[in-house]
């Protein structure tokens, strides 16, 4: 097994584990972060597949912009909190709890 295959194996494992984490995490911030990690791992896989343009797009869009959009959505939905089942009535975006 050469270095390329080893890297691919590591990246695929990272991607699959964080995708499963995205499904089971109670915490929505953690789920968004896990989806960002999936995008980053997929970008590494694109580099290994000789697709530098796609890797750049995936890294910029998937790991950066999409995370920002989802985090802004979380903030406006009032889900921006680290404890999943907390009963907090007020807006959660005002407090720097991240």
């Amino acid at each position: 097994m050469d270095l390329q295959t080893l890297f691919a194996l590591l990246a695929v494992l990272l991607v699959l584990v964080s995708a499963l984490l995205m499904l089971v995490l109670d915490n929505m911030i953690g789920a968004v972060a896990a989806s960002g990690v999936v995008s980053l791992g997929v970008a590494v896989l694109f580099v290994l597949l000789h697709a530098p343009d796609v890797a750049m797009t995936e890294a910029v869009v998937g790991a950066g912009l999409s995370g920002v959009v989802l985090a802004l959505g979380l903030r406006r939905l009032g889900l921006w909190r680290l404890d999943a089942g907390a009963t907090r009535q007020s807006a959660a975006g005002d407090e720097p709890d991240a």
């Binding site: 499904l23 089971v24 109670d26 912009l65 920002v68 959009v69 802004l72 959505g73 903030r75 406006r76 939905l77 009032g78 921006w80 999943a84 089942g85 907390a86 009963t87 907090r88 009535q89 007020s90 807006a91 959660a92 975006g93 005002d94």
Partner: peptide, 29 residues
Amino acid sequence: LAGLMTQLAEQPATAQHPHQHPHPHSEDG
């Protein structure tokens, strides 16, 4: 995309619903 993100960032989260009850997360992944 800048306009889109600015629109999402505007008007921070307020208590939209008067009787909004934070339901417990009960996803069964």
